[in-house]
Amino acid sequence: MTAKALILAGYGLNCEEETLHAFEYAGLSGEIRHINDLIENPKELDEVQIVAIPGGFSYGDDTGSGNAFAQKMKLALWGPLQKFVARDTLTIGICNGCQVVANLGLVPAFDAKYGQRLVAVTHNLTARYQCRWIDLKVSSNSPWLEGVENMHIPVAHGEGRFMMNEDTLKSLQSNGQIAAQYAKPDGNLADGEFPYNPNGTTNDIAGITDESGKVLALMPHPERGMFNWQRDDYMEMKDKAQREGKELPEAADGISIFQNAARYFEVAKKKSA
C-alpha cells in the first residue's frame, strides 16, 4: 500500500488540484478533502500518512492570512490533528497553508508543544502581492527536504513575511528549523534585498519546520515549479535543449519535495518489513 495524502480544500483554498497532481506524480496516492467533510469525519486523519494544506486565499486573507481557517480547524479538529502529528506522519502547508500551519502553532512547536502561535506570516513589506520566481537556499534535516540544496520555484503571496521575537528566531536557528531562505541567483542569501527577498521577511526566511522536521511550512510554491515547462526560463531551456539535440527532462526542482515524501514512506515501509 502506498502512503496516502489528504489535501484540504474549501473556503478559498485554491491550489488543491495541482498539489494533488504533485503527490500523484511522485507516486503517492492522494485525495482532496473539503474541510467540512473532514470535520464531519475526523477519523480519516487516522488513516492517512500525509496532510497537505495547499495555497489559496482562505477567507480572503481577512483578519490575517490563514487566521480564520486556522481558527476553524482549531475549534473543530484540534484533538485529531494533535494525534496526527504525534504519529509518524508528514504535514506540509504551502503558501496560504503555511500561514494556516503557523497560526495553528504546528510550527515551530518547540519541545513538541504544538498549538502555540510564535511566528506570524504577515503583510509583505511592499504591502503588495508578489508573484515572481525566486531562488531558495535549503538547509534542513526535514524529511521533506532531504538532499535539496537549492530550489528555483515561484512565490505568489501578499502576506509572506515571517515575523517573530528574538528568542523564537534564535531557537529556530539553533534547532535547525529554518528550512529555506531566499537567495540570489548566485547562491548567496538575499540579505533582505528586493526582489530576491520578495517580502522583507526576517532573515530571508521562506519556510520553517517543527523540531522533528516532519511539519513543513513553506511560503513558495513547489507544485508550481515541479516541471521544467512551468519555469520562467522554460523557453530558453527548451531552445537550448533543441539546439543541443537533447531531450529536456520533465521534472524540475519543486517535485523533489513530493518525491521525498514518497521516499520517506517507502523507507519506513521497508524498515517495518
Binding site: Q130, C131, R224
Partner: peptide, 14 residues
C-alpha cells in the same frame, strides 16, 4: 504582472 498571480493552478507555460 507581478501583482497578478499568473501561475496558480500550476498551468503557466509562457
Amino acid at each position: 504582472s507581478t501583482q497578478y498571480d499568473h501561475n496558480v493552478q500550476g498551468t503557466a507555460v509562457m
